[in-house]
Amino acid sequence: MGVSELLASALRMSVPILLTALGAVYTERAGVVNIGLEGMMIAGTFWGAVGSFYYGPFVGVLLGMLAGMLLALIHAVASVTFKINQIVSGVAMNILAAGLTRFLCIQFFSMATTSPQVHSFKAWSIPLLDQVSFLKPVVTGVSPLIVVALLLVPVTYYVLNRTVFGLRLRSVGENPLAADTLGVNVTLTQYAGVLISGALAGLAGTYLAVEHTGMYIEGMTQGRGFIALAAMIFGNWAPVGAMWASFLFGLSESISFRVVASKIPYQFIKMIPYVVTLVVLAGVIRRATPPAADGVPYERGGE
């Protein structure tokens, strides 16, 4: 098992975390904390599998993203419009998503915890690069969603830093009162941030079910939504940083697959991604600078 195989596996493991972490960047830069990303990812795994099972992977992606966005919409209504505690609303999203998918899985597939095998995208090979023998495992058999995820990093960077929408998003997250005074629609901007995060988490879930495993399995997200939040924090609320952090977490997961044959009990190997997350958060957090108004509901007239 060479280094390039390990890198290839790490890349594949980091994609769901990366997509969700990018989503987290959008919502948190708009000042809304979204702990419910895990639930939105769960919705993505299920609806991605449903769409893919009946109509193929494109519909799967569409349904997965829509399902994530629907949950995100509920989160936005609760936390932006009704201004309830964002953590509470996020936790409710996670509970709701778990119950709903289990119920729907019985309705669709007559099984509570898994779906049948579903259709995947046709894997790609990156031309030219696949001629380099070291890179071969990394760039052959690549899911198109991996390419999409990597492309979304510069796209997110551009949107946040070079567009009017990005400027508004950031200003709402830093100082909603100032943004409001300058005529930015705070509510609308925050809705946009939350909805994008839901869509990306749904996409991440779809990737897991449709591309990574080829089926939906209950609980297959395994806390990646939360790990993605940690990746976003580690990446200092920025897309490029989130990418490197996601890759680190992906690497820790792929290493954990590779040491299974060793003498370490497998329960400890299973802990690796979570312990790495804890260590990373403990070591890095002091340097991190969250948006100033992150997690604080904005109320006109500042009550």
């Binding site: 790990i227 009990p265 329960q267 804890l278 958060l281």
Partner: peptide, 29 residues
């Protein structure tokens, strides 16, 4: 971690939940 390092307790406790289950599993099995 919350008090000394400013780590948000939601993420750290969720990570601890996963670790707890694996640890329990190991201790029992």
């Amino acid at each position: 971690l919350k008090v000394k390092r400013g780590v948000h307790e939601v993420i750290s406790t969720i990570m601890m939940n996963y670790v707890a289950f694996s640890l329990m599993h190991w201790l029992i099995a």
